[in-house]
Amino acid sequence: MGRKRVRLRRPRGAAEFLSAAVVALAALVLAVRMAAAAVGALKDGWPFLLILVLLAGAVGAWRIARTVRGRRRDAVRRAALRITLAEFDAMDDRQFEYALRDLLVRDGWSARRVGGSGDQASDVISDHTQRGRIVVQAKHTRVGGKVGSSVMYAVKGTAGPAHRADHAVVVTNGAFTRDAMAWGERHSVHWVDRDRLRRWAQDGTALHELLGLSARARRARFKRAA
């Protein structure tokens, strides 16, 4: 059985009205006294409260300034970022992917590393306000290694349907087979070999300038090819 709801009834008779008025008056007096006590406490303790407010403001301003300085340092560092071929050769696969991400950030792209299990032929995804989205497949190899056409096929197959990309690029610190380069040229999959990587990472040429990436020109072609 549920509990019975308690209903308040209106006072009846002069005695009940008088009792209700006394209770209401007592509650009002208590509220006024509590308000007065609060005002008194504020008057007595305002210097302490002011110090707390000023201290909190100073801490907040310091944190904001530290964040701004950190972002400026990062921007300067990235703008001056240069990576040599020897440094690339000494990296492992994961470090290579992060290095490519940092280079894209240097070039003005909003980049993130996504490589790993189930990456669908994409290790770095980058967005640009004018040039759209670029998908980068990183192929770190030992010196003298070559990337074949199968990598191009995989990137072409997922760039549009899986990643909604405008541009697809395969980057290696090694080389590409002739068939891979020819297939990439025919099907709009850009390639960056050791020489192009040097021009991008070491000489400072932006990737979109190096490859001549247009503004949002390839997405429909990727989708039709899927």
Results as ranks from 00 to 15, higher is better:
1 M>Y: 11
5 R>W: 09
12 R>M: 13
12 R>L: 12
14 A>R: 11
18 L>Y: 12
18 L>M: 13
19 S>Q: 13
19 S>M: 13
20 A>N: 14
21 A>Y: 06
23 V>L: 06
26 A>I: 11
27 A>N: 09
30 L>H: 15
34 M>L: 07
40 G>I: 01
41 A>F: 12
42 L>F: 11
43 K>P: 12
44 D>R: 14
46 W>S: 09
47 P>K: 01
47 P>Q: 02
48 F>K: 08
49 L>H: 12
50 L>G: 15
52 L>Y: 11
55 L>V: 12
56 A>N: 09
56 A>Q: 12
58 A>L: 14
59 V>H: 12
66 R>L: 14
70 G>N: 15
73 R>P: 11
74 D>Y: 07
74 D>F: 04
76 V>Y: 15
76 V>W: 06
77 R>S: 06
77 R>N: 01
78 R>M: 15
78 R>Y: 06
80 A>F: 11
82 R>C: 08
84 T>A: 14
85 L>T: 05
96 F>T: 02
97 E>N: 09
97 E>K: 03
98 Y>V: 02
101 R>W: 04
102 D>M: 08
103 L>I: 09
105 V>S: 02
106 R>M: 00
109 W>C: 04
109 W>A: 00
109 W>V: 03
112 R>D: 04
115 G>P: 14
115 G>D: 02
115 G>Q: 10
116 G>F: 00
116 G>W: 02
118 G>K: 08
118 G>T: 01
122 S>L: 01
122 S>A: 13
126 S>M: 04
126 S>T: 07
127 D>L: 08
129 T>N: 05
131 R>N: 04
134 I>F: 00
135 V>H: 00
135 V>F: 00
136 V>L: 13
136 V>C: 11
146 K>A: 13
147 V>L: 10
147 V>Y: 00
147 V>H: 01
149 S>E: 06
150 S>F: 05
150 S>R: 05
151 V>C: 06
155 V>C: 01
157 G>A: 13
158 T>I: 09
160 G>V: 04
162 A>S: 08
163 H>D: 07
164 R>L: 13
164 R>G: 10
167 H>A: 04
168 A>S: 07
169 V>D: 01
169 V>F: 04
172 T>K: 13
172 T>C: 06
172 T>M: 09
178 R>I: 01
178 R>G: 03
181 M>S: 12
183 W>L: 09
186 R>W: 15
188 S>Q: 05
188 S>N: 11
189 V>Q: 00
190 H>Q: 13
191 W>Y: 00
196 R>L: 06
198 R>D: 07
204 G>M: 00
205 T>M: 02
206 A>H: 02
209 E>F: 06
212 G>E: 02
213 L>I: 15
214 S>K: 07
215 A>G: 08
215 A>T: 02
217 A>L: 06
220 A>L: 12
221 R>N: 10
222 F>I: 00
222 F>A: 00
